[in-house]
Design a binder for these strands. Structure first.
Lengths: 339, 339
DNA sequence: TTGAAAGCGTTACCAC
DNA sequence: GTGGTAACGCTTTCAA
């Protein structure tokens, strides 16, 4: 039989109200009484009853916010779906989710959104942050104001954010190279198409990829180009790269750009390239079905959103901090056959 | 604001007790009253509050049972862990889990376990059934007694079980062949080591595998042998098969047996076999690290157990049947780099 | 067939 | 600083 506040109150010879205040550090308890209560709770292995808590929390109008500035992006749609699903599962606590979408990489917009969420009184925020000092500062300000903040999908390390939930980018690059190891035992001469060399995640992927290549016989990165996540630019740059380096036998798309990039390869008549992409979008699936891409390394966006809300909940409602500072998703390998 | 039983009661001009009886079909409600209540609930979009329900359910001593007759098996340990985790998350309902382990493939034992669980008054059972008519009958008997039953990891189709939760074995075989397609473009001459040709799952894997091979150039199944899930037998049979067919360039382990089988390959000095296994065990990982196995196709045992309990809960507590008759896990590809 | 009331565990509020 | 009490939504029991 689980221990209840009532039982602790009886044992300690105080009222339930006092036990509640002691257990939750709400103050107004005489230190020696508090100590005794905490000790009894500890000894009896007290864990708060979720249902009772939920019922009482309903009147609080708890809410979380999520800031992900990429509208209509398949990846973030999934992430948001995951977050919403988790929040719905906490609906008996009266929890709701405020979603702040919008254009990409707009500093002022993101600062504005954070302020709006703060003003709305959210207890927790998950953010896919722009990597700039202004955001760092703002995050620390929110944390100081008692809001639980975590980063999703993209991290800013120099902040008081609770933890990061998302892709292990380095390992993602390693895994991509691992697939090539199996498909190109004779040696890999890789062209990399990244998004932007200013994006941390993309760089980590490239690092993992090239570190791995160094340990493989006759394998190296031949050249790198940037797509800036635009298919047209990806086309141009990939075309240039492939023309300049006919020895390339392998392409690694470390970010968006596979559609444009592969068009370039097709236009150049390159039929036996081995190609690895990232993430699981409609276009990538199509390219895999057509046999132009052999595999893609995915990062479970739905679970990222889901897990993010779980962690915020534990922190904001149960006062339980995340177990790890880095909560990494699995790097899922997809080929045509297990889409 | 979500609708409550109280609100419905007021609108219908009856008491909460009556609404409860009507909503849950407990009888003792005048038909016309019942109809009116149900209609109001429908119109207002009533959904029961989870927390309130949980609090009230605590006194019921609800329990589920799980029958998986493989003691000390890594795979089933994970599955049980998943089940236990899910049940713990429902602990505010007072739910508990009764685990019935034991020896493999013992019909009488499994029948006995089912009866014991029934006598213990469980509301739901997840079972990895032995594929025999006696079990079919017993399952139908349990269902008739009002117990919700689902199959996990292995199915019996001709029963009234609610659904199957587990591996999509056919697709698992297809995926294994898909990996070989990428690694052996020149053509696959496959030796298959299965567990038992009497095991449905193993057969489905082989079927998926060979169906896929038929669509690949110069590829076919050269031979098949049985390990009966014993490493010694796997060694003997694989040794025989590889000796008889030196043209084999690829091994597919559709069940346990990779340790023995690969020892045979090593002893025969076969260095350039391409090898695919199933599941993610300590031994398989080791063989991958050593480079003897290139990839393994996994079936998420933890999630199987977890999902199974979720489905039982929805059925037993919320009266919501599973959305699909077949709840398939993802077929996860693991290589050395994404273990 | 129906209603009233108690109880589940937690929190908040208001007296004292 | 502390205790008493009501409130959250649902189920059950007992009486009518």
């Amino acid at each position: 039989m689980p221990v209840t506040v009532k039982q602790i109150a009886e044992l300690a010879g105080v009222s339930r109200g006092t036990v509640d205040r002691a257990l939750n550090g709400r103050g107004n308890v005489r230190p020696e009484v508090e100590k005794r209560i905490l000790q009894i709770a500890e000894e009896m292995g007290y864990t708060p009853n979720r249902a009772g808590k939920a019922l009482a929390y309903q009147r609080k109008n708890l809410s979380f916010g999520i800031v992900a500035n990429v509208e209509g992006n398949e990846f973030f749609d999934d992430l948001l779906k995951g977050a919403q699903t988790a929040v719905d599962e906490y609906s008996d606590f009266g929890l709701s989710l405020k979603i702040a979408g919008g254009r990409r990489y707009d500093l002022d917009q993101q600062l504005q959104q954070l302020s709006t969420l703060q003003a709305a009184g959210v207890s927790g925020i998950a953010i896919s942050p722009i990597n700039l000092p202004e955001i760092e500062e703002k995050i620390n300000e929110l944390v100081a104001a008692g809001i639980k903040v975590i980063t999703v999908n993209s991290d800013i390390e120099n902040t008081k954010r609770l933890c990061y939930v998302g892709c292990n980018y380095y390992q993602s690059g390693v895994t991509a190279a691992g697939m090539l190891r199996l498909m190109r035992p004779e040696g890999i001469r890789a062209g990399i198409v990244t998004g932007s060399i200013r994006m941390l995640g993309h760089n980590r992927r490239m690092k993992g990829f090239s570190d791995m290549l160094k340990r493989l016989p006759d394998s190296f990165v031949t050249d790198v180009c940037e797509s800036l996540d635009e298919q047209e630019i990806a086309y141009e740059e990939t075309h240039k790269m492939l023309s300049a380096h006919p020895e390339i036998n392998t392409l690694y798309f470390a970010a968006a750009g596979a559609v444009g990039g592969m068009q370039a390869a097709v236009d150049l008549g390159l039929k036996d390239l081995t190609v690895i992409a990232c993430d699981d979008t409609e276009k990538i699936r199509q390219l895999m079905q057509e046999g132009l891409i052999q595999a893609t390394i995915c990062q479970e966006p739905f679970r990222q959103g889901y897990r993010a809300m779980q962690i915020l909940f534990d922190a904001a409602v149960n006062n339980v901090p995340p177990a790890e500072e880095f909560c990494y998703m699995d790097n899922i390998i997809r080929i045509k056959e297990n889409l």
